[in-house]
């Protein structure tokens, strides 16, 4: 069976208007894919906004997949959350990225979005008290169905440094370069 290694790190986030940020991530792949080693989900440390308006996590990624088919190439899902001075957390951004199928080094900038406040009272409450709307069904992040009625606003970006190593793909006739 063909193997895929994803190495690298989640570098950090920029242009979020919050003091302290962290990120929960998970890898999503189709039924053909099996995780052999590595953590398919995790949480970064919480980073404080530095001088360059960016929070740094430098969180390592190392995951090993084996696969029987190409359907459902792994995706990385991110939930960026903020941690305020009272210790409260809420989600401030969602993002999803299909991982590159090209071996070698990739620097990926992932723009994030979050559900926006629908009513004026919600907006006022969020401005003064914090908090946000969250998704109940997180499938909507990686599956492009039923997005029409969702109101979102754009947030900052998350930066990834990814190295892809493939094994035995060409043996099975998969052409990727």
């Amino acid at each position: 069976m063909a193997e895929l290694h994803i190495l690298g790190n989640i570098h950090g986030a920029s242009n979020f208007k919050y003091q302290s940020l962290f990120c929960r991530y998970s890898f999503q792949a189709g039924p053909n894919w099996t995780v052999v080693s590595g953590l398919p989900e995790g949480q970064t440390v919480s980073g404080q906004l530095g001088s360059s308006q960016s929070a740094v996590w430098s969180h390592p990624l190392d995951i090993h997949y084996i696969t029987k088919g190409l359907q459902g190439w792994p995706k990385l899902l991110l939930h960026v959350s903020c941690l305020d001075s009272l210790g409260r957390t809420w989600t401030v951004g969602y993002s999803c990225c299909s991982l590159p199928a090209v071996p070698g080094y990739h620097e990926i900038e992932l723009p994030c979005w979050a559900p926006s406040a629908a009513t004026l009272t919600d907006r006022i409450r969020q401005y003064f008290l914090g908090g946000s709307h969250q998704l109940l069904q997180t499938d909507i992040i990686n599956i492009g169905l039923d997005r029409l009625k969702l109101k979102t606003e754009s947030r900052g970006t998350v930066k990834l440094h990814i190295d892809i190593v493939l094994r035995n793909f060409s043996q099975f006739g998969v052409e990727y370069k």
Binding site: G12, S46, Q48, H59
Partner: peptide
């Protein structure tokens, strides 16, 4: 523990 990427229990950090 930084290299393992787990059990950081939401360690608060700053970068400089």
């Amino acid at each position: 523990m930084l290299a393992s990427g787990k059990d950081n229990y939401l360690l608060r950090t700053e970068s400089y």
